[in-house]
Amino acid sequence: MIEVNNLHKSFGSLHVLKGITEKIDESEVVCVIGPSGSGKSTFLRCLNLLETPTSGEIRIDGEKVTDPKVNINKIREEVGMVFQRFNLFPHMTALKNVALAPMKVRGLPEKEAYDRARDLLKKVGLEDKANVYPSSLSGGQQQRVAIARALAMRPKVMLFDEPTSALDPEMVGEVLNVMKDLAKEGMTMVVVTHEMGFAREVGDRVLFMDDGIIVEKGTPQEIFFDAQNERTKSFLSKIL
């Protein structure tokens, strides 16, 4: 589903990604962990070209997204993204947040888009909040709306950039539950996270990144209980 080949990204003189090569299969849930500044968010943001890779190749569903001739917007329609700080549109109700892109990008008729949005809000357990503005929602609720918003485009892949890091602890669970349901339905997911519980329970594989490269990868079991690399061990010892 996603193939990344020797991906590099620099911001000016700062070399953030130093050659990432990775293959993610359909329906796979891959968790990316690593210390801050390791490049995991940048890696994720390169996958839907929110950051333009400096060099290397990314293919999503066979399509070479790093091709300069490619229509970036078309790619992004297939790749949903959930942000750490939700980034809901504050001037729209929860329902409109979800319905906007299908109407504007996919050209869905209004009624259909709103029906779809209502279904998705129901799916994330927020059907009763359809007409509420984001400012009146809790962090956990906002993040669930954000997930529904991304799903409204019926993406093939979902990217999660530390989706629970900005949440109060008691709201982490509700968001993770939505993500677990999604994983069960067979969504291909790449999740930058520090939620080891989630990674262990739902993740098919874990990538440990440090200093712009994937230092170690394996099943959650292998990474969390049988890490081989010193850097992985030292990182895990700090967070577990």
Partner: peptide, 27 residues
């Protein structure tokens, strides 16, 4: 307007123009 707004709109496949019109300008 927070940078994340443009990123969220773009990540949904909206063009820069659509994002400007429907997301950034109203705010």
């Amino acid at each position: 307007v927070d940078r994340g707004q443009m990123e969220a709109a773009r990540s949904l496949g909206m063009t820069e123009r659509q994002a400007m019109k429907d997301v950034i300008m109203p705010q």
